[in-house]
Amino acid sequence: MTLAAAAGTAAHATTTTAAAGTHGFLSPTGVEIAFLLVGLVTFGAAVITVTTRQLVHAALWLVVALGGLAVEYLLLTAEFIAWVQVLIYVGSVVVLLLFGLMLTRAPIGRSPDADSGNRPVALAVALAAAGTLVWVVTDAFRTTWIDLDGAPAGSTDVTGASLFQHWVLPFEALSVLLLAALVGAIVLSRKAKADAASDAADTRRDTEGTR
């Protein structure tokens, strides 16, 4: 909705062009090295997030992981997604998470009961998901290079145009879904008269507002 006006120019249908002739699969340019390093940091932060015994530390490491992801998006020229990542995840979701933690119980130091005991299962699922993703993504893109002539595929212009010209229907369907979630949250909070539900409503509305 907010981007309807922004979607002015024509969509670049060809988001990426093959230029494998001049570049190898991994030729160490500055951007690639930066991408790898940030990736390592993001990965490390993510691992600490799920292994640390200190709840609030986990939430803050999550900030690092999500921020790292935003930087990766930036390096892939997806500027719009990067800022949305920061706005929604770092700015709102993590704040909400911390809010919830502080409201309930977040002692300074270790919480021994923070471990759910599902470690092997979680590890298996994580590895399977990671394996699938890596396989699919490398298989799909291989040595594809982003064409930097003209507006890059991830820029606000192109994203807006494709979102509101080619993908309007899914977009609106998603908004209806979010609206339903919002209404549901309000109904739940009315009936139960619990404050917790209104917090859920806040996030929903945040996501709605920034979409």
């Binding site: 609030v56 803050l60 900030v63 500027e79 719009f80 800022w83 949305v84 920061v86 706005l87 770092v90 700015g91 709102s92 993590v94 704040v95 911390l98 809010f99 933690l101 502080m102 977040a106 300074i108 820029s155 606000t156 212009d157």
Partner: peptide, 27 residues
């Protein structure tokens, strides 16, 4: 910046994390 408004609002929202961290970590 192409998405200046987004950038500005997104980054300003991060600043509050500082207050949250300070509030929680002070014991």
């Amino acid at each position: 910046l192409d998405a200046g408004v987004f950038f500005v609002l997104a980054v300003m929202g991060v600043g509050v994390l500082g207050s949250l961290m300070a509030g929680w970590a002070s014991a």
